[in-house]
């Protein structure tokens, strides 16, 4: 049979056989592409479309052009949400250095190090809902651990989650707990791949301490840093569960972020302004798109550089 095949001219073979190499990858990709299109790509455009309508999800949708966006400009709750998103973006990134230092600290061979590592990784395994509850009890103004702890140093009880200026930071701190663990794991795996010969060479050249870390170790951890950066940024932008659990957006809406505000406007008990919610979602989408585009671009640059 093998000889028979080889003597056939290309025209004798079927269309599929001739194009097999070009088509097969697409066939394998087809289910994923189909579902990604139906559940992700098309809804993005639908949702952008809905943002031009005034619709309660039940009755007739009324086309209002960019009215929803105009209203957003003048909406103080939207402004608060946007600022909070920015706070999340900035402070959530603290998880990266924190994760790096814990990883460096744990990257040694001591008896039982695996147990310590898994204990440090533990918060990431917990559901965000549990993390939120634990921290909201921790922050309780009178009975909470934090207030009692401060009490030992003569500082009065603080009501972190009830204070509009501090509540968002309180929630971010709660979010940092699992996120740090996540970054730590990324760095731990990254540290395994650090080239011992380079470390040795650097040591011979007299590099130690911070210099060693900054010029030798961290550059080698670049892939891990990149991934940690991506997951932390995306995590910050999609923060929702912690806010919902810990403050429900309050006090008086001061801890809302865009995703939470969108939910409140479109899907909560008092909401069902689908168009307005979609407009908020669209804004959030473009903010995310900015970061995602940057990530894709830098990955592409990386690939090309090789």
């Amino acid at each position: 049979m093998a000889t028979a095949t080889s003597t056939e001219t290309p025209a004798d073979r079927g269309w599929y056989k001739r194009n097999e190499i070009a088509i097969t990858p697409w066939l394998f990709l087809a289910p994923a592409i189909l579902f990604f299109a139906v559940y992700v790509i098309i809804p993005i455009f639908q949702s952008i479309g809905i943002s031009f309508y005034d619709w309660d999800g039940l009755g007739e949708a009324r086309f209002v052009g960019v009215d929803n966006y105009v209203e957003l400009l003048d909406d103080s709750a939207f402004e608060v949400s946007l600022w909070n998103n920015l706070k999340w973006l900035i402070f959530y990134l603290l998880a990266i250095p924190a994760g790096l230092f814990i990883a460096l600290f744990l990257n040694q061979t001591v008896t039982g190090i695996r147990i310590y590592k898994s204990l440090f990784f533990f918060p990431f395994v917990l559901s965000q809902v549990v993390v939120g509850l634990v921290f909201s009890w921790f922050y309780l103004p009178n009975e909470g651990l934090l207030s009692n702890f401060l009490g030992w140093f003569g500082m009065g009880p603080v009501n972190v989650l009830g204070d509009p200026t501090w509540a968002t930071y309180g929630i971010i701190a709660a979010g940092l707990w699992p996120q740090t663990a996540y970054c730590m794991i990324l760095y731990l795996t990254g540290l395994n791949a650090v080239d011992p010969e380079q470390v040795e060479a650097a040591r011979l050249d007299g590099a130690r301490g911070w210099k060693m870390l900054w010029y030798v170790i961290i550059p080698q951890l670049k892939p891990a840093t990149f991934i940690a950066f991506v997951v932390t940024i995306i995590g910050a932008l999609r923060s929702f569960d912690l806010i919902s659990i810990m403050t429900n957006g309050g006090p008086f809406g001061q801890t809302r972020v865009l995703s939470f505000y969108m939910f409140e406007k479109a899907l909560s008990e008092y909401g069902f302004r689908m168009g307005y919610g979609a407009a908020i979602a669209t804004v959030l989408f473009f903010i995310m798109l900015f970061f995602i585009a940057y990530f894709l671009w830098s990955m592409w640059k990386e690939e090309k550089g090789r």
Partner: peptide, 22 residues
């Protein structure tokens, strides 16, 4: 309050009441 007032008004107003109380 939230059954007599329209949902959107009620949501904003109750948030305002909470702020007022603090």
């Amino acid at each position: 309050f939230d059954r007599d007032f329209p949902a959107e008004m009620a949501a904003e107003a109750m948030q305002g009441f909470q702020e007022f109380m603090v």
